[in-house]
Design a protein around this nucleic acid. Sequence first.
DNA 1: TTGAAAGCGCTAACAG
DNA 2: CTGTTAGCGCTTTCAA
Lengths: 325, 325
Amino acid sequence: MSRKITIKDVAAEAGVSEATISRALNDSPQVKKATRQRIQKIAQDLGYHPNGLARSIRVQKTNTLGVIIPDILNNFFTHIIRAIEDAAAQAGYDVLIVNTDEQDDREVSALNLMLEKQAAGVIITSAGGPTNYAAQLGNTPAVFVDRMPPAGIATQYDRVLVDNVRGTQDLVTQLIDRGAQRVGIINSAVSMTATERLKGYHRALSVAGQPHDPAIEVTARTDNSNVAQMTRQLLVNQRCDGLLAADNTIMDAVLHKLPDLDLPPFQLGSFDDQDWFDFLPQPIVTAKQPIAQIGKTAVDRLIARINQPDLPAEEFRLAAKIITH
Amino acid sequence: MSRKITIKDVAAEAGVSEATISRALNDSPQVKKATRQRIQKIAQDLGYHPNGLARSIRVQKTNTLGVIIPDILNNFFTHIIRAIEDAAAQAGYDVLIVNTDEQDDREVSALNLMLEKQAAGVIITSAGGPTNYAAQLGNTPAVFVDRMPPAGIATQYDRVLVDNVRGTQDLVTQLIDRGAQRVGIINSAVSMTATERLKGYHRALSVAGQPHDPAIEVTARTDNSNVAQMTRQLLVNQRCDGLLAADNTIMDAVLHKLPDLDLPPFQLGSFDDQDWFDFLPQPIVTAKQPIAQIGKTAVDRLIARINQPDLPAEEFRLAAKIITH
DNA sequence: TTGAAAGCGCTAACAG
DNA sequence: CTGTTAGCGCTTTCAA
């Protein structure tokens, strides 16, 4: 492999100094137009590509935003990624995405990688794990998305979250309006999310004058390995006529179980939306998160903080929208 | 924001030279164990994080693989990403993913970004567009995945592809075995893929002794905007009793149209698999690509080429598997 | 076992 | 308008 072309090669070829090459290639107005064009042509012909690492090291900053995602196979997060990429690109930043598959150790490595790559800031969609964010991040600007940072430090960081309480309340209310008298919930394993969604669930029941019943409030494992059994528990044993899955991975597991059950009609609800819910044999109500807006808000806030590190930490709550498929 | 901690700060604190710090932090055997441990502790306490850019620039190489993806919302590609990330991590590489949304200009920027970041190699899942890969890539190692590079240069690069001909043939044969007498195809807009899948389709028909009918071989636009209309055309006007969608985005558009049509029973087939096909009201046959293997093959080959740049360009064909949901 | 010094590719004063 | 020079943070000879 022939050695990489550097600015020095271009300088030699053009018969000017490296500084002039640098200026020309960065469209500095202080280089004569003729020279600039000549240099740009030479650079092109030589197949020169600037070394961004060298540049970053010299100017002491990068335009990279790190993004930590817990599950890249989850539709919700791919939409988040896309929204973040779009917003970042618009602001002149590139994005370093790392998927952790919900594993804490991979989250730690991901964060390390981002710090080593000198990310200007990070967007974290993970948490819950024992990661010591404060220690790892130091003063790297960070925004938490979708999931809260651990309780102790939650208010030290910016957060972009959906209004879980309201979204769940509206969702359950919709199930009740559609006729459900006894709505069970399979809650999320993510703690803060679960707490909020449970609260919304309770509020809807209270407003409707329906009793709470702990027997029909269950929690999924992170890998959803217990969801099939819980589905049977709620819909068969507990005779629920409504079922709420607290996120789309839980709903997926529920749907896989349903055909075994041979049930009378009941109401189905899911936090998070999926396009293919349209194809299900029975109606389903969802709380659809404003994903594009979440991504944009997170990026905008992160960039604001990069430029102005001592902004006060803030929480952004965005409203989910109820959809019936 | 307090200045970043560098190796120099650690050196000052430890009272040794920067060189020793560097050695200690890289677990060099030639530094005394006691010193090493002392230094590592100090680095930790100071919150030191090595600057990977500086390191890369010094050692003249990175451990970054660039990955260009045309559509991150497509389930197929997210699985590819995951497989690539896994294989790369195992080999000690990190991954820079850029989504192009099927836009050629974004592909060009993506490639530029990767070159600027000094990616050790790139995996490209795109092509078709006018991108001048040869010129842009120079001698950066590259592997094309899922889609061929443009015809002129196809044989200059490594390719990891599914066996489209065989997969489609098996798929259509399955539809015929299940009773279809007249199978229409809505083909892909990606040219090489389309050609191969059409060939497999023809082979299956020939083997079954069924005639080809150009009237029921149609092609989707890249954005699938014409698929709804084609679905009606084939299933209603042309009275097909079998329909093959040449990829999962096409199938998605077909499924959205079906409820409007009120059809007699027919056979449905799709290249690419989706988990949620299980939930469809009618059976569906798919050719499932060996995604994990595709990702691993691509990464392994790319790394092999990075280490040994003058390997001959090779084509890897992996078999798809027929699944009935 | 450790230190001094050079240099990776680039940009930004400062001079001219 | 252009060149000289220094230095970003790191690793790696070469010497001690």
